[in-house]
């Protein structure tokens, strides 16, 4: 009933961040349907969208905080927590499954769980458009084809 005064959800979410998020939103506000471009830019800037960013974005874009929250929660790309040091994303879609993606994914998860890869998140993705050269994946954003467990171990060696 009153505008909820959100407290910053994390240490980084201070006044500087709020001003920057506002500036990002204002930069895009005259576009049609500006919310996704704004979220992308906040992600590019901070790696995640903080709960405290939501009312700021909503205010600039003439949206309710609830609407922004709904959108944030819909898209897999929109992180709401600070990102890990490393991200390994492995394709689990059919074409890659046809060449062993499931066992690769399982092995990677196991390795991550064992702590051997440091602060690494192993994600599943569905199709990177590299279906003739599977198993595919990205390692810290770099696209790779014909991946196997050995190659992955080599690529992530030394991660803490």
């Amino acid at each position: 009933m009153s505008t909820p005064t959100s407290t910053p959800a994390s240490p980084e979410a201070g006044p500087d961040r709020s001003a920057l998020v506002r500036a990002v939103a204002e930069h895009h506000r005259d576009q049609r349907g500006p919310l996704l471009p704004v979220l992308h830019e906040v992600l590019a800037e901070f790696g995640y969208v903080d709960a405290a960013d939501v009312p700021v974005i909503a205010d600039v874009l003439n949206l309710s905080a609830a609407e922004v929250h709904g959108v944030v929660s819909f898209y897999h790309d929109v992180r709401t927590t600070p990102p890990p040091t490393h991200v390994v994303a492995l394709c689990r879609a059919e074409a890659c499954q046809a060449v062993g993606a499931e066992s690769l994914y399982a092995a990677a998860q196991e390795r991550a769980a064992s702590g051997e890869m440091g602060d690494t998140e192993v994600q599943q993705v569905f199709c990177l458009g590299n279906c003739a050269l599977g198993p595919s994946g990205t390692v810290d954003g770099r696209l790779l084809g014909r991946l196997d467990a050995a190659r992955l171990t080599e690529l992530t060696a030394g991660w803490r």
């Binding site: 949206l63 309710s64 609830a66 609407e67 929250h69 709904g70 929660s73 819909f74």
Partner: peptide, 9 residues
């Protein structure tokens, strides 16, 4: 008011 939304998918 748009105070409600669907969260997740």
């Amino acid at each position: 008011t748009f105070a409600l939304t669907v969260e997740g998918r």
